[in-house]
Design a protein around this nucleic acid. Structure first.
Length: 276
DNA sequence: ACGTTGACCTGTGTGC
DNA sequence: TGCACACAGGTCAACG
Protein backbone atom coordinates (compact mmCIF):
# COMPACT_ATOMS: atom_id res chain seq x y z
CA UNK A 1 0.00 0.00 0.00
CA UNK A 2 1.46 3.12 1.21
CA UNK A 3 4.08 5.19 -0.48
CA UNK A 4 5.35 8.51 0.79
CA UNK A 5 2.07 10.49 0.39
CA UNK A 6 0.03 7.84 2.21
CA UNK A 7 2.51 7.45 5.08
CA UNK A 8 2.87 11.22 5.33
CA UNK A 9 -0.92 11.63 5.54
CA UNK A 10 -0.97 9.08 8.36
CA UNK A 11 1.96 10.79 10.08
CA UNK A 12 0.40 14.24 10.02
CA UNK A 13 -2.88 13.02 11.50
CA UNK A 14 -1.05 11.01 14.15
CA UNK A 15 1.06 14.05 15.02
CA UNK A 16 -2.19 15.92 15.72
CA UNK A 17 -4.00 13.11 17.52
CA UNK A 18 -1.54 11.12 19.61
CA UNK A 19 1.38 13.35 20.58
CA UNK A 20 1.44 13.75 24.36
CA UNK A 21 -0.62 10.61 24.89
CA UNK A 22 0.72 7.80 27.08
CA UNK A 23 0.52 4.15 26.04
CA UNK A 24 -1.70 2.50 28.64
CA UNK A 25 -1.79 -1.07 27.33
CA UNK A 26 -0.53 -3.09 24.38
CA UNK A 27 -2.08 -6.21 22.86
CA UNK A 28 -0.07 -8.18 20.35
CA UNK A 29 -2.48 -10.27 18.30
CA UNK A 30 0.26 -11.50 15.95
CA UNK A 31 3.72 -11.63 17.52
CA UNK A 32 5.36 -12.39 14.15
CA UNK A 33 5.06 -8.76 13.07
CA UNK A 34 7.59 -7.72 15.75
CA UNK A 35 11.06 -7.88 14.20
CA UNK A 36 13.02 -6.37 17.09
CA UNK A 37 13.44 -6.97 20.00
CA UNK A 38 11.52 -10.13 20.99
CA UNK A 39 7.74 -9.73 21.37
CA UNK A 40 7.78 -9.72 25.18
CA UNK A 41 10.45 -7.01 25.35
CA UNK A 42 8.54 -5.07 22.70
CA UNK A 43 5.37 -5.09 24.82
CA UNK A 44 7.19 -4.10 27.99
CA UNK A 45 9.11 -1.39 26.15
CA UNK A 46 6.00 0.33 24.81
CA UNK A 47 3.88 0.19 27.94
CA UNK A 48 3.74 3.39 29.98
CA UNK A 49 5.72 5.51 27.51
CA UNK A 50 4.55 8.89 26.26
CA UNK A 51 4.53 9.63 22.52
CA UNK A 52 6.68 12.75 22.06
CA UNK A 53 6.43 13.11 18.28
CA UNK A 54 5.55 11.19 15.15
CA UNK A 55 8.10 11.29 12.37
CA UNK A 56 8.47 9.65 8.99
CA UNK A 57 11.48 8.56 7.01
CA UNK A 58 10.89 7.02 3.58
CA UNK A 59 7.88 4.76 4.25
CA UNK A 60 8.71 4.20 7.92
CA UNK A 61 6.53 5.69 10.65
CA UNK A 62 8.61 6.66 13.69
CA UNK A 63 6.97 7.25 17.07
CA UNK A 64 9.52 8.91 19.33
CA UNK A 65 8.88 7.86 22.93
CA UNK A 66 9.61 9.55 26.25
CA UNK A 67 12.46 7.16 27.13
CA UNK A 68 14.40 7.87 23.94
CA UNK A 69 13.30 4.70 22.18
CA UNK A 70 11.51 4.81 18.84
CA UNK A 71 8.52 2.69 17.97
CA UNK A 72 8.86 1.93 14.26
CA UNK A 73 6.03 0.81 11.96
CA UNK A 74 6.30 -0.18 8.30
CA UNK A 75 2.95 -0.89 6.63
CA UNK A 76 4.53 -2.47 3.55
CA UNK A 77 1.97 -3.34 0.84
CA UNK A 78 -1.36 -3.35 2.59
CA UNK A 79 -1.03 -2.35 6.20
CA UNK A 80 -3.31 0.11 7.98
CA UNK A 81 -2.80 2.21 11.10
CA UNK A 82 -6.19 3.14 12.52
CA UNK A 83 -7.06 5.49 15.39
CA UNK A 84 -10.33 4.39 16.96
CA UNK A 85 -12.25 4.65 20.24
CA UNK A 86 -11.39 1.62 22.34
CA UNK A 87 -14.99 0.40 22.25
CA UNK A 88 -15.06 0.37 18.42
CA UNK A 89 -15.79 -3.01 16.84
CA UNK A 90 -13.07 -5.62 16.49
CA UNK A 91 -11.64 -5.61 12.98
CA UNK A 92 -10.23 -8.66 11.23
CA UNK A 93 -6.52 -8.76 10.40
CA UNK A 94 -5.65 -6.64 13.43
CA UNK A 95 -2.06 -7.48 14.36
CA UNK A 96 -1.32 -5.00 17.14
CA UNK A 97 -3.50 -2.87 19.40
CA UNK A 98 -2.07 0.04 21.38
CA UNK A 99 -4.41 1.60 23.95
CA UNK A 100 -3.79 5.23 24.80
CA UNK A 101 -4.69 7.17 27.94
CA UNK A 102 -7.52 9.05 26.19
CA UNK A 103 -9.84 6.13 25.49
CA UNK A 104 -8.56 5.66 21.95
CA UNK A 105 -6.53 2.90 20.38
CA UNK A 106 -4.02 2.62 17.57
CA UNK A 107 -4.76 -0.55 15.66
CA UNK A 108 -2.29 -1.90 13.17
CA UNK A 109 -3.86 -4.11 10.50
CA UNK A 110 -2.33 -5.98 7.59
CA UNK A 111 -3.91 -7.92 4.76
CA UNK A 112 -0.82 -9.44 3.21
CA UNK A 113 1.47 -10.36 6.06
CA UNK A 114 4.45 -8.18 5.28
CA UNK A 115 3.83 -5.31 7.67
CA UNK A 116 6.31 -5.07 10.51
CA UNK A 117 7.07 -3.19 13.68
CA UNK A 118 10.14 -2.64 15.85
CA UNK A 119 11.19 -0.89 19.03
CA UNK A 120 14.66 0.59 18.71
CA UNK A 121 17.16 2.71 20.59
CA UNK A 122 18.47 5.78 18.80
CA UNK A 123 21.66 4.02 17.70
CA UNK A 124 19.70 0.97 16.51
CA UNK A 125 17.82 3.11 13.98
CA UNK A 126 21.08 3.17 12.08
CA UNK A 127 22.44 -0.29 12.89
CA UNK A 128 19.28 -2.44 12.79
CA UNK A 129 17.17 -0.50 10.28
CA UNK A 130 19.97 1.24 8.39
CA UNK A 131 17.94 4.42 8.14
CA UNK A 132 21.20 6.27 7.53
CA UNK A 133 21.47 4.59 4.15
CA UNK A 134 18.12 5.93 2.91
CA UNK A 135 18.18 8.61 0.26
CA UNK A 136 17.01 12.19 0.72
CA UNK A 137 13.37 13.07 1.42
CA UNK A 138 11.94 14.41 -1.84
CA UNK A 139 9.44 16.75 -0.14
CA UNK A 140 12.03 18.30 2.17
CA UNK A 141 13.27 21.83 1.37
CA UNK A 142 16.80 20.55 0.83
CA UNK A 143 15.77 18.34 -2.08
CA UNK A 144 17.01 20.56 -4.89
CA UNK A 145 17.55 19.65 -8.51
CA UNK A 146 21.26 19.51 -7.80
CA UNK A 147 20.71 16.91 -5.06
CA UNK A 148 18.47 14.86 -7.34
CA UNK A 149 20.98 14.86 -10.19
CA UNK A 150 23.79 14.00 -7.84
CA UNK A 151 21.90 10.98 -6.46
CA UNK A 152 21.59 9.53 -9.97
CA UNK A 153 25.10 10.45 -10.99
CA UNK A 154 27.23 7.46 -11.95
CA UNK A 155 24.27 5.07 -12.06
CA UNK A 156 23.89 2.84 -15.07
CA UNK A 157 20.52 1.15 -14.71
CA UNK A 158 17.02 1.93 -15.90
CA UNK A 159 15.36 5.01 -14.42
CA UNK A 160 12.32 3.28 -12.92
CA UNK A 161 14.09 0.75 -10.68
CA UNK A 162 16.51 3.47 -9.64
CA UNK A 163 13.64 5.70 -8.54
CA UNK A 164 12.15 2.78 -6.62
CA UNK A 165 15.46 2.28 -4.79
CA UNK A 166 14.94 3.85 -1.36
CA UNK A 167 18.67 4.43 -0.95
CA UNK A 168 18.72 6.80 -3.92
CA UNK A 169 15.54 8.74 -3.12
CA UNK A 170 13.31 7.87 -0.17
CA UNK A 171 9.59 7.30 -0.41
CA UNK A 172 8.70 6.64 -4.03
CA UNK A 173 6.79 3.48 -4.93
CA UNK A 174 5.24 1.95 -8.02
CA UNK A 175 2.31 4.36 -8.34
CA UNK A 176 4.08 7.68 -7.97
CA UNK A 177 7.07 6.60 -10.06
CA UNK A 178 4.83 5.77 -13.01
CA UNK A 179 2.94 9.04 -12.59
CA UNK A 180 6.12 11.10 -12.37
CA UNK A 181 7.63 9.42 -15.43
CA UNK A 182 4.45 10.08 -17.39
CA UNK A 183 4.39 13.75 -16.38
CA UNK A 184 7.97 14.18 -17.46
CA UNK A 185 7.52 12.27 -20.75
CA UNK A 186 10.22 9.72 -19.95
CA UNK A 187 9.95 6.00 -20.69
CA UNK A 188 10.41 3.92 -17.50
CA UNK A 189 12.96 1.67 -19.19
CA UNK A 190 15.29 4.50 -20.22
CA UNK A 191 18.85 4.18 -19.01
CA UNK A 192 19.57 7.01 -16.60
CA UNK A 193 22.79 7.70 -18.49
CA UNK A 194 20.75 8.55 -21.59
CA UNK A 195 18.72 11.28 -19.87
CA UNK A 196 19.48 14.88 -20.80
CA UNK A 197 19.76 17.58 -18.18
CA UNK A 198 16.44 18.94 -19.40
CA UNK A 199 14.77 15.55 -18.98
CA UNK A 200 16.25 15.14 -15.52
CA UNK A 201 14.92 18.55 -14.57
CA UNK A 202 11.43 17.69 -15.82
CA UNK A 203 11.61 14.43 -13.86
CA UNK A 204 12.69 16.24 -10.71
CA UNK A 205 9.80 18.70 -10.99
CA UNK A 206 7.35 15.86 -11.72
CA UNK A 207 8.41 13.81 -8.71
CA UNK A 208 7.94 16.74 -6.35
CA UNK A 209 4.61 17.58 -7.96
CA UNK A 210 3.07 14.09 -7.85
CA UNK A 211 4.10 13.62 -4.23
CA UNK A 212 2.57 16.93 -3.19
CA UNK A 213 -0.59 16.18 -5.19
CA UNK A 214 -0.82 12.78 -3.50
CA UNK A 215 -0.54 14.35 -0.07
CA UNK A 216 -3.10 17.03 -0.96
CA UNK A 217 -5.55 14.27 -1.92
CA UNK A 218 -4.74 12.36 1.27
CA UNK A 219 -3.20 9.43 -0.58
CA UNK A 220 -4.16 6.85 -3.19
CA UNK A 221 -6.59 4.03 -2.43
CA UNK A 222 -6.03 2.11 -5.67
CA UNK A 223 -5.24 -1.55 -6.41
CA UNK A 224 -7.35 -3.22 -3.75
CA UNK A 225 -8.53 0.05 -2.25
CA UNK A 226 -7.15 -0.94 1.12
CA UNK A 227 -5.23 2.21 1.92
CA UNK A 228 -7.00 4.13 4.69
CA UNK A 229 -6.06 7.13 6.79
CA UNK A 230 -6.05 6.78 10.56
CA UNK A 231 -9.79 7.53 10.64
CA UNK A 232 -10.54 4.72 8.19
CA UNK A 233 -11.21 7.03 5.26
CA UNK A 234 -9.93 6.43 1.74
CA UNK A 235 -7.73 8.92 -0.04
CA UNK A 236 -8.87 10.45 -3.31
CA UNK A 237 -5.72 10.57 -5.39
CA UNK A 238 -6.81 7.47 -7.36
CA UNK A 239 -9.26 9.83 -9.07
CA UNK A 240 -6.32 11.92 -10.27
CA UNK A 241 -4.01 9.18 -11.55
CA UNK A 242 -3.02 9.74 -15.16
CA UNK A 243 -1.64 6.34 -16.17
CA UNK A 244 -1.37 4.01 -13.18
CA UNK A 245 -3.78 1.09 -13.66
CA UNK A 246 -5.40 2.91 -16.57
CA UNK A 247 -4.26 0.48 -19.28
CA UNK A 248 -6.52 0.63 -22.33
CA UNK A 249 -7.82 4.08 -21.44
CA UNK A 250 -7.04 7.19 -23.48
CA UNK A 251 -3.89 9.07 -22.58
CA UNK A 252 -4.82 12.29 -20.76
CA UNK A 253 -2.58 14.41 -22.96
CA UNK A 254 -2.45 12.87 -26.45
CA UNK A 255 -4.42 10.63 -28.79
CA UNK A 256 -2.62 7.52 -27.56
CA UNK A 257 -3.76 4.70 -25.29
CA UNK A 258 -2.23 3.85 -21.91
CA UNK A 259 -0.22 0.62 -21.99
CA UNK A 260 0.78 -1.88 -19.34
CA UNK A 261 4.23 -3.44 -19.49
CA UNK A 262 6.67 -5.05 -17.06
CA UNK A 263 9.82 -3.16 -16.14
CA UNK A 264 12.23 -4.73 -13.72
CA UNK A 265 9.58 -7.19 -12.62
CA UNK A 266 7.06 -4.49 -11.72
CA UNK A 267 3.78 -3.70 -13.44
CA UNK A 268 4.33 -0.44 -15.25
CA UNK A 269 1.86 1.91 -16.88
CA UNK A 270 2.76 4.46 -19.51
CA UNK A 271 1.71 6.25 -22.67
CA UNK A 272 4.04 4.93 -25.40
CA UNK A 273 3.14 8.01 -27.42
CA UNK A 274 4.21 10.64 -24.86
CA UNK A 275 7.01 8.76 -23.10
CA UNK A 276 10.29 8.14 -24.85
C1' DA B 1 29.67 -2.31 -5.79
C1' DC B 2 25.84 -2.42 -8.62
C1' DG B 3 21.78 -3.99 -11.21
C1' DT B 4 18.43 -7.60 -11.70
C1' DT B 5 15.55 -11.22 -10.21
C1' DG B 6 12.83 -13.93 -7.22
C1' DA B 7 10.95 -14.90 -2.63
C1' DC B 8 8.26 -13.54 1.03
C1' DC B 9 2.46 -14.09 2.55
C1' DT B 10 -2.38 -14.12 2.07
C1' DG B 11 -6.80 -12.21 0.48
C1' DT B 12 -8.93 -10.96 -3.81
C1' DG B 13 -10.02 -10.57 -8.63
C1' DT B 14 -9.98 -12.88 -12.99
C1' DG B 15 -10.79 -16.29 -16.26
C1' DC B 16 -11.79 -20.88 -17.46
C1' DT C 1 -21.12 -21.27 -9.42
C1' DG C 2 -16.64 -23.07 -8.34
C1' DC C 3 -12.01 -23.27 -8.49
C1' DA C 4 -7.26 -22.55 -9.77
C1' DC C 5 -4.16 -19.18 -10.35
C1' DA C 6 -2.01 -14.83 -11.07
C1' DC C 7 -1.44 -10.76 -8.66
C1' DA C 8 -0.63 -6.59 -5.01
C1' DG C 9 1.26 -0.16 -3.56
C1' DG C 10 7.54 -3.05 -0.65
C1' DT C 11 11.75 -4.96 0.85
C1' DC C 12 15.48 -8.10 1.13
C1' DA C 13 18.69 -11.72 -0.13
C1' DA C 14 21.10 -13.88 -3.64
C1' DC C 15 23.14 -13.99 -7.92
C1' DG C 16 26.09 -12.57 -11.95
Amino acid sequence: MPELPEVETIRRDLQTEVVGRTIAAVFLQEPEIVKHPDPEAFLVGLRGKRIESVDRQAKYLLFHLSDGYTWVVHLMLEGQMLYLPEDANWLPETKLTVSLDNGYQLRMRDFVGYAKTLLLREDELGSVLKLRLLGPEPIAPGFTFGVFRQRLNGRKGMIKPLLLNQQIIAGLGNIYVDEALFLSGIHPGRKVTSLSDDELHRLYESIVQVLHDGIEHRGTSAVRGLYRDIFGKKGSHQEHLRVFRRQGEPCPSCEGVVEQIVVSGRQTFLCPCCQH
